[in-house]
Amino acid sequence: MVLGDLGKRINRAIRLMSDATVIDEAVVKEMLNEIAKALLEADVNIKYVAQLKNRVLNRVKFEELAAGVNKRKMIQGAVVDELCALLDSGRDPVPLKKGKPNVIMFVGLQGNGKTTSCVKYAHYHQRKGWKTALVCADTFRAGAFDQLKQNATKARIPFYGSYTETDPVKLAIEGVNRFKLDKFELIIVDTSGRHKQEKALFEEMEQMSEAVNPNDVIFVMDSSIGQAAEDQAKAFRSSVSVGSVIVTKLDGHAKGGGALSAVSGTGSPITFIGIGEHMTDFEPFNTQSFVGRLLGLGDISGLMNM
């Protein structure tokens, strides 16, 4: 499903190259152009695509290839490595501590799926035995509290919010404190959508983060986003300490490369993906097994260490 087409195209490009009688620089370049096109069509940031092309070229030692090492494997290895580098933040997800109050704040662009993912995330952990609660700190969007309330009620998760309070920071503090008192282990704070061009919205997010001092800030990003992904992701990271990324709406047709660029933008790993509108349309995400599946290579840990 996810990014499936991209995997097929990358594999085909690699195969075509290894069918060539002589593998010289021109043949490798042609393969890289094919891969670059596939990545661009999947919305991977154009800067990273150029970078990937150069890095692979620099790594492939044509003299050694001539001496008869397994060319296909060597080049494939280089491509896979670079793709993984693109998807891998190099950081582990923030660990949650059982028996302690873990405050998790959800942030992201408007309409990217924060509220939906908050509840999915809460539901996922509640089923694993965490004492979980939701705080609605979106006082801006029409119907925001009703949305969270209805979803939380369906999932039988305690929630906190208000129809009349207009200060989201105040609400966040009240909600978090109340659930801390009641010894909740996972306190999830939903916030309004915002974007880097509007300073006041980012300041509000900073204040909220200072006030509730979250253990993790989760950046939620829509998989269909294009070339603007990285700028926005970077801006969120430099404003609050984003620790994980959730990529949503991967049940659609989008190939998700834009959202994956958000990984490089935030320097944080993707921890979950959203694959539908329903509560259970939510999966944990592991970068390496994902790239392996993507390229149809099975477990790639062997390839990675070549």
Partner: peptide
Amino acid sequence: FRSGAVEQLRTHARC
């Protein structure tokens, strides 16, 4: 279908 969708529109209608 979507949770809160009706209330969202009701809020706009009121404003």
